[in-house]
């Protein structure tokens, strides 16, 4: 099994108005893992994502899917978009149909499958995202979180290998955030999907992601698993980001209050483990 299902090599992208959004960006998306692309507003995350399934053609550099450079012909793009699905940040700009069922079927119908196969996939996608009860509802009567699920189902119905999500947690309440992230985790485990999320919601990264890239001004400035990335607080803060709250607390306890911990912690469970170890050490 190859390690990287998607690879980006030295990618440059310049918009027609002259804005340089990507300036020599290199990264790899690991197969079957959840990868986070962390970056502040305007770091170029959305541009990168639209380059991943060929909507944007890079000015320089290349994108590789399963080790082969993207084929920008009509056929090639079609095959690529079947395998790399994008869920956009605002579901209202993705859902075009007033019927939930019809919207979900759109991508699958475009793959020219038989009616039975489309129906099977749509039903499956609705089950996986837990929205079967919304089937007959009009799109405009759904809540924001429900629309988001419908948008995800619409991409899942194409049975992609890579699921790319732009700001999946933006605009959701705390409950909605944890539900969506758990859903993505479940999909990844069940279907063996490779999941890529762009986010600036820092606290979800140590909880749900396997690998992290930190982006700033069109480049990757930091990478590693969440633990490695967040053990470099200065670099993180340099690009207008911060540590997870728990990580910040542990840092303050260590630096200002003189606690001696044997490890770092970025989530509540990690913090408990470290603090328990500290307590045992004291006794």
């Amino acid at each position: 099994m190859m390690e990287h299902i998607l690879e980006v090599r030295d990618l440059y992208y310049t918009y027609s108005d002259g804005t340089q959004a990507l300036k020599g960006l290199t990264l790899g998306i690991k197969q079957g893992k959840t990868t986070a692309v962390l970056g502040g507003n305007g770091a170029g995350k959305s541009t990168l994502f639209l380059s991943l399934n060929g909507i944007y053609k890079p000015t320089a550099g290349e994108v590789l899917f399963k080790g082969l450079p993207l084929d920008y012909s009509r056929r090639g793009l079609k095959d690529l978009r079947k395998s790399v699905g994008i869920v956009f940040q605002d579901p209202d700009s993705q859902l075009f149909s007033a019927s939930v069922y019809q919207d979900i079927s759109f991508g699958a119908v475009n793959l020219k499958l038989t009616k039975e196969e489309v129906r099977r996939r749509v039903n499956m996608a609705m089950e996986q995202t837990d929205i079967t009860h919304l089937k007959d509802k009009p799109t405009h009567c759904l809540s924001f979180g429900q629309k988001k699920r419908v948008a995800i189902a619409g991409v899942l119905a194409m049975e992609p290998e890579v699921l790319v999500l732009d700001e999946p947690t933006a605009g959701l309440d705390p409950m909605g955030i944890s539900e969506i992230m758990k859903l993505l985790r479940k999909l990844q485990a069940q279907l063996g999907l490779s999941v890529v999320i762009a986010t600036h919601d820092i606290d979800i990264i140590p909880l749900y992601c396997d690998y992290t890239y930190v982006m700033d001004q069109g480049k990757i400035v930091l990478e590693g698993n969440p633990k490695e990335v967040f053990s470099q607080p200065d670099d993180i803060r340099n690009v207008n980001l911060r540590l997870p709250r728990i990580g910040h607390l542990m840092e303050i306890l260590k630096d200002k209050d003189g606690f001696v911990f044997n490890d770092t912690a970025n989530t509540i469970s990690e913090a408990r483990r470290v603090l328990k170890a500290w307590k045992i050490n004291q006794e």
Partner: peptide, 20 residues
């Protein structure tokens, strides 16, 4: 944005959907 999103799901000039 809508056009981009449709394109990402394989839009080829026609909004074909499955009807119940």
């Amino acid at each position: 944005e809508l056009y981009t999103a449709l394109e990402a799901r394989g839009y080829d000039g026609e909004l074909n959907v499955l009807e119940e």
